[in-house]
Design a protein around this nucleic acid. Sequence first.
DNA 1: AGTATGACATATA
DNA 2: ATATATGCCATAC
Length: 112
Amino acid sequence: MKPEYRRIFQAVAAIPRGRVASYGQIAARAGLPGRARMVGKVLGYRSDGQELPWFRVLRADGRIAFAPGSRGYREQVERLRAEGVDVRNGRVPMQAFGLDHDLDRELWGMPD
DNA sequence: AGTATGACATATA
DNA sequence: ATATATGCCATAC
């Protein structure tokens, strides 16, 4: 297993429950700036056994990366909604569920 | 070795 | 909102 892949898995696993991140953010966090595509690749390599919150990874604009109606798409929507993430028309408001917002919330000390 | 294809991103138009 | 244009790079042919 390549070390980059491990870091990617680690970065994905670090996404808190009920929140989401973009492929680019994960890549950057894994020390691979500009290599967002690789993140998608690696997520595809995941073996079904391991527990990985792959569904918390979206495109930069908040849209689900899978084709609408596809199996992966439906599962992702389902799983996200199951933990309180608002998914409308295949899209999630990153402004509300993204990672940077957490820091803001910490600093401003205000609830959702 | 060369081309094509992605669970992508950013910049323009 | 749609549409190109680049950059990116692991895999598959």
